[in-house]
Simulated assay, not measured.
Amino acid sequence: MSQLSAWDHPEPLALDTAPLPEYGTGSLADLLPTLAAGMGVPGLTATIEELTPADRVCVFLVDGLGWEQLRAHPDEAPFLTSLLGSSRGGTGRPLTAGYPATTATSLASVGTGLPPGAHGLPGYTVRNPATGELMNQLRWHPWTPPRPWQPYPTVFQLAHEAGVHAAQVSSPAFENTPLTKVALSGGTFRGRLSGEERMDLAAEQLAAADRSLVYTYYAELDGSGHRYGIASDTWRGQLMYVDRLAQRLAEQLPPRSALYVTADHGMVDIPFDEQHRIDFDEDWELRAGVALLGGEGRARHVYAVPGARNDVLTVWREVLGEQFWVASRDEAIAAGWFGPQVDERVYPRIGDVVAAAHDDVLLIASEREPKESSLVGNHGSMTPAEQLVPLLEVRS
């Protein structure tokens, strides 16, 4: 049961206090359209005004590298830290990930140039309206036809059609995944196992044509944060490695190139105690009227049984409202959590109730989600530690 009974809870957090992602001006969804528009790809608009066009562009996305975490570790990342200012010919600023700040959602925003309400991957797990089951959009389980789920072309596809050399350089394991197909496909996929090989090949792909758009990716920083936390030596060691990879790529840029280092989300460590980890599976108040619990610990989609939606919203606000922003589906959409508009096909994927963590707290489900409930580092919500990701630039 919750730490406090429903009638003992103070006034819930006002929804207008949630720091919304900067859709349309400074979110991950704005990055590739801005870069590709600068290369002359039709149908795209440059909305991040300070980015200067370049003939050859590489985006290096480091999974889990939050802006706040990077700024807190200058000794482990001297090269990336140098890009926070104006040295080395680069500039640094934060972007917002989008809501929720989670990998599947963010990668789809990066690759399609669309906010979650349009591309349709609005969470870690969401209900599939066709089957009534929860679908894990990172692992794509249960399997769902990819193209109807996300029908829009990627920026890489648009660039390829416009005569730009488009390439993705990542782990070979990602080449044929549904998430890659709907979010990051277009042009050529090049699989390489080691980070060094990816950096070297990304530089080669940049030089392969007069106009090139290249994407490369590194995942292990995120994995270390989840397993050991961002305060761990393991995480700091991974950050040191990422820093060397970024410098290695920057030093190989061909002429007329721009490198952008960014991320999909930040991360927060959550203590292992009942005050910070509320267990849905052991809380009868929160379970009442709930058919499915989706999302993840800091960004929940709650699907009510028929007729119970208003009751679930009321109880969740009373029980969690001091620590979470708790909204109905329509309130979250109207507030712009998922972008300026939500497509009709995406609307029923969003929970009847949406809960985004404000404090250092996690809503776990120890029986339903034992692996996710055991993670040290977590993300998903709209706090700066999760939302803000770096946009660091190097030009040649």
Score class of each variant (00 low, 15 high):
S194R: 12
S194H: 06
G195I: 00
G195M: 02
E197V: 05
E197W: 01
R198V: 05
R198S: 00
R198C: 01
M199Y: 04
M199L: 03
D200V: 11
D200Y: 02
D200A: 10
L201A: 11
L201I: 01
L201C: 05
L201T: 15
A202R: 01
A202T: 13
A202C: 06
A202V: 02
A202G: 08
A203Q: 03
A203T: 09
E204V: 01
E204M: 09
E204P: 05
Q205L: 11
Q205V: 00
Q205A: 01
Q205T: 02
Q205G: 02
Q205Y: 03
Q205C: 10
L206G: 07
L206K: 02
L206T: 00
A207W: 03
A207H: 10
A208V: 00
A208F: 00
A208S: 14
A209E: 05
A209N: 04
D210G: 13
D210H: 04
D210P: 00
R211M: 00
R211Q: 14
R211N: 03
S212N: 08
S212M: 06
S212T: 08
L213G: 12
L213F: 07
V214E: 04
V214F: 11
V214R: 11
V214K: 08
Y215R: 01
Y215Q: 04
Y215C: 06
Y215G: 10
Y215I: 08
Y217Q: 07
Y217H: 15
Y217M: 07
Y218K: 02
Y218L: 10
A219L: 08
A219G: 05
A219V: 12
E220S: 13
E220R: 12
L221I: 07
L221T: 14
L221N: 03
L221M: 04
L221K: 11
D222C: 09
D222F: 10
D222M: 13
G223S: 12
G223P: 04
S224Y: 07
G225D: 12
G225R: 05
G225K: 04
G225V: 09
G225N: 02
H226I: 06
H226S: 06
H226Y: 08
H226K: 06
H226R: 10
R227D: 15
Y228Q: 11
Y228S: 14
G229S: 13
G229N: 11
G229H: 07
I230G: 01
A231I: 05
S232A: 14
S232I: 10
S232G: 01
D233V: 13
D233R: 12
D233H: 14
D233K: 11
T234R: 15
T234V: 15
